[in-house]
Structure formats: structure tokens, C-alpha cells
């Protein structure tokens, strides 16, 4: 028998409030090109990206600590496949532990030739030193910065 189908497209708009901690973080990033973490007084750990409480000690974080712009790669991947609503491949992104932070924050790796996956992976291997670079026009978003190899 003839089997029929119906096509649907969900287009839903949200306006997400970021809250006090992320707002402060993004204002510093936007206005001063600086990255900050939040320190947990109980463990002393500096959490980046910053949040209002520690997910391990469960205590509120207490103070802002400037971190980076240098750091080291903790994880990466290189995407070669296009996905709808995601960037055009190839691109590399991953996580970097910024100097002064105890945890890692996500971002794109730029300035690496990604044509040969194995060569690119060798360049981006865990432990490699990088520096955060900032966009000239910053809007207060995590994409205002990215990482480049030292």
C-alpha cells in the first residue's frame, strides 16, 4: 500500500536569562577581555566557567579570580561532518585548563591546518600550551574568545 508522511519543522525562540554569576563573567569578558573563575572557599578550587556553587563541596563560591589567558589543552576533537544548525566543518574545539583555574573551559581552536586529521591531532594533543585570543568586537558570549597555539 501507499505509505504517506508529513514534514514538520520546529522553530522555537527562547530568551535565556544568564543570572548574576554568568552576567558578571560576560561583562568582564565583553568590556575588559578578561576571563574569571569563581573560587570555592572550602576546597580552594577555582571553577571555570564560574558558577554560584561548587558541584563537589556544594558550598557557595566566594570570590572572583582572574585566569589565563595562557593554558593547556585537556581535550579536543576535530569535526569533519556537517550537522544542521552547527558550524561548517572542518573545525576543532575542546577544553582548556587556563592558568590559575582548576577546571577546563570549552572553546574553538583556531589557526591549525585541519586537512590531515592525524597531523592536526598531533598538534592539538592533550597538554599542548595555548593562549586565549579575544575578538575585537565582543558581545558578552563564550564565543568572544578562542584558543591559539603558543
Amino acid at each position: 500500500m501507499e505509505l504517506l508522511k508529513r514534514k514538520e519543522d520546529w522553530k522555537i525562540t527562547y530568551t535565556h536569562a544568564l543570572g548574576e554569576v554568568a552576567s558578571w563573567f560576560y561583562v568582564q569578558l565583553r568590556d575588559n577581555a578578561k576571563i574569571y573563575g569563581r573560587r570555592c572557599a572550602k576546597s580552594g578550587r577555582v571553577l571555570v566557567p564560574p558558577r554560584a556553587f561548587s558541584d563537589q563541596t556544594l558550598e557557595p563560591t566566594t570570590d572572583w579570580v582572574e585566569v589565563g589567558p595562557g593554558g593547556k589543552i585537556e581535550a579536543f576533537t576535530i569535526v569533519y561532518e556537517p550537522f544542521e544548525n552547527l558550524p561548517e566543518p572542518p573545525y576543532a574545539f575542546g577544553y582548556v585548563q587556563l592558568d590559575g583555574a582548576d577546571t577546563a573551559i570549552g572553546g574553538f581552536f583556531k589557526g591549525v591546518d585541519l586537512k590531515d586529521p592525524h597531523k592536526a591531532a598531533e598538534i592539538l594533543k592533550v597538554g599542548t600550551r595555548v593562549t586565549a585570543k579575544f575578538a575585537d568586537k565582543r558581545v558578552g558570549d563564550v564565543l568572544d574568545f578562542w584558543f591559539e597555539l603558543d
Binding site: 527562547y14 544568564l18 566557567p49 576533537t77 574545539f93 577544553y95 570549552g106 563564550v142
Partner: peptide, 30 residues
């Protein structure tokens, strides 16, 4: 992967092309 990108928080992480494949690719790297 478009649906799965939406499981990341809209504040710090969703702007990155995180998905279950990229997340577990990073696990393989580590």
C-alpha cells in the same frame, strides 16, 4: 545531533558544537 546539542546549558556551552559524538570523541582522546 541538533537535538542533542540542546542538552548543553545555554549559558556557557551550547554555543560550542557540543553533541554526544563530540563529547565522546573527547573521552576517546583522553
Amino acid at each position: 545531533q541538533t537535538v542533542l546539542n540542546k542538552i548543553w546549558d545555554p549559558t556557557y556551552e551550547r554555543q560550542l558544537p557540543l553533541g554526544t559524538i563530540t563529547m565522546l570523541a573527547m573521552s576517546a582522546i583522553r
